[in-house]
Design a protein around this nucleic acid. Structure first.
Length: 486
RNA sequence: GGCUCGUUGGUCAAGCGGUCAAGACGCCGCCCUCUCACGGCGGAAACAGGGGUUCGAUUCCCCUACGAGCUGCCA
């Protein structure tokens, strides 16, 4: 049997990493076995729809490389793939009526007031209500009359008060609940739209979904869905409920709390491959110890039985590390082409950006790190003269001044300002004088950069800065040190 | 409140009756070195608690605690 999975988001905003991970696992489970991954838009809640949200879903999936085999834009013969369009075919109501006829569902005409009156317990500020099956007692004639009168109605599932319902989740094992716990959830809303609870079952069945892969939040309502399948006489699909992804406070990720969406992370300078790789490991681990996976490798190695059951905290620090790994492994030219906009923004087009790009490559974790790191090339920052003193280099302000004065004429005489030429001659100089390399390089680099740490050594910086600017900065350093001494 | 699920270092996470309880991120130290970074080496750091079962429990069962999810005409 060919596995078919689906990602079924409701278009209500951005996709955060939890949403994306669901999509990823659904994709991986299907693709690992050569199956199909479908996209279905669940827009049955007309009030929560957000303009443009569907486009975000397409964009995100595309950027993440999770290409669907079927979807609203790719008909595979199981369409429509948008629930509002499916509703127009009348299918949900038809199926609901079938259930009514079987006694597995019933019309309910209860209005808001009556329902409000049913709310009894108040727990943590939330009122808890269990529907009392009031309308189940209506005779067929009464129902007909109310329907004919055009009264608004909903259709509710009719769950038994006794017995148990169970199903097997691939990860969590057998889940058993007392039927008395199952409330008569609404299948068809008064606006004619199906609820998620009903639509997901009808759609998953009619679209041939074999493996229902979804967030853990559905685990406890799954018995109700299972009852629906059974009521229809449909085969229950394979269920794989995924553990939650939480923030550092162990709270479920949500847009409301300002948690990053996939697109936010891209803006923050993360690579889509790194994000995908990272979230793949949030709740799943391979049999070996590997951590770096391309999407193709994930497809090959993804064994969903190894998905864990406990929630995972989204750790930005590790994502940053992983992004850095991707950056380091990237081809130099590709890196440069991607880094270029950031380099240009920080430095303009004057300097040799390609050289600077190479310097920065092993030192950044996200693109945004570039700007701060290279700013000194464009403009010498104001710096504290104490920076010239470094215990390990054995330099002091005084020794630095002397060193720079000693080295300046030599640099003025130098023609070759290549990194190789400069380092060759400077090291020779150090050796001749019996200085350690650091003793001569530290003052020079400080004068050139005005910084304690730089993405390159003194001679590389000098090469990029060029003879004129380099000498200018060194002279300035001498001047300031001399002044500061008095 | 009820129901369901979960609980190995700060975080991810291996383990599936007998291990000195992996590995990774982060942190710390050392080496490399013209600073930083990379790279290399090393370190601190965990089985929530209590009962069982067993010759032997991180591993199986029960209870408690804690956490999470659901309990919507939201998904």
């Amino acid at each position: 049997m060919k596995i078919r999975t689906r990602y079924a988001p409701s278009p209500t905003g951005k996709m955060h990493v939890g949403n994306l991970r669901s999509a990823l696992y659904e994709y991986l489970i299907a693709k690992h076995s050569g199956g199909d991954f479908l996209l279905r838009i669940e827009d049955t809640d007309q009030e929560r729809l957000v303009e443009g949200a569907t486009e975000i879903i397409y964009r995100t999936l595309d950027r993440a490389g999770l290409h669907h085999d079927e979807g609203p834009d790719k008909d595979g013969g199981f369409g429509p793939y948008v629930q509002s369009e499916r509703m127009r075919t009348g299918m949900y109501l038809r199926y609901a009526k079938e259930l009514v006829e079987k006694g597995e569902a019933y019309y309910c005409f209860c209005d808001k007031q009556r329902l409000e009156g049913l709310k009894s317990e108040v727990v943590e500020g939330k009122e808890v209500m269990i529907y009392d099956k009031h309308c189940l007692g209506l005779s067929p004639q009464e129902v007909e009359a109310k329907l004919a009168a055009g009264l608004p109605y909903v259709i509710r599932q009719n769950n038994p008060q006794e017995g148990q319902t169970s199903f097997v989740d691939e990860l969590y094992g057998e889940i058993v609940v007392d039927n008395a716990q199952l409330d008569d959830m609404i299948l068809i809303k008064s606006d004619g739209f199906p609820t998620y609870n009903f639509a997901n079952v009808v759609d998953d069945y009619t679209m041939g979904i074999t493996h229902v892969v979804r967030g853990n939040e559905y685990l406890s309502s799954s018995p109700k869905y299972v009852r629906l399948y059974q009521a229809f006489g449909w085969e229950v699909p394979v269920y794989v409920h995924l553990p939650l992804i939480t923030d550092e406070n162990h709270k479920k990720l949500s847009k409301r709390s300002g948690h990053s969406s996939f697109e936010d992370l891209l803006e923050q300078g993360f690579l889509p491959e790194a994000i995908v790789n990272y979230i793949a490991l949030l709740g799943w681990s391979p049999a070996d110890n590997r951590e770096i996976f391309s999407l193709e490798e994930l497809v090959r190695d993804f064994d969903y039985t190894r998905i864990s059951k406990s929630p995972a905290v989204f750790d930005m620090a590790k994502l940053r590390w992983m992004n850095g790994e991707y950056l380091k492994a990237m081809d130099g030219d590709v890196f440069f082409s991607l880094a270029r906009p950031y380099l240009e923004q920080a430095l303009g087009g004057e300097l040799d950006l390609e050289k600077i790009s190479a310097m920065v490559k092993t030192r950044i974790e996200v693109w945004q790190d570039i700007e701060e790191m290279v700013a000194f090339f464009a403009e010498l920052p104001d710096y504290d003269l104490d920076m010239y003193a470094h215990k390990k280099m054995k330099t002091t302000r005084e020794s630095s001044l002397a060193l720079l004065r000693e080295v300046l004429p030599l640099l003025e005489a130098q023609e070759d300002y290549s990194h190789e030429g400069l380092s060759g001659f400077l090291q020779a100089f150090a050796q001749e004088k019996g200085y350690k390399n650091g003793y001569v390089m530290w003052p020079i680099r400080t004068a050139l950069s005005g910084r304690q740490t730089t993405p390159a050594g003194a001679t590389e910086i000098l090469e990029v800065l060029g003879r004129e600017e380099g000498l200018r900065r060194i002279r300035l350093g001498i001047e300031r040190l001399a002044l500061g001494q008095d």
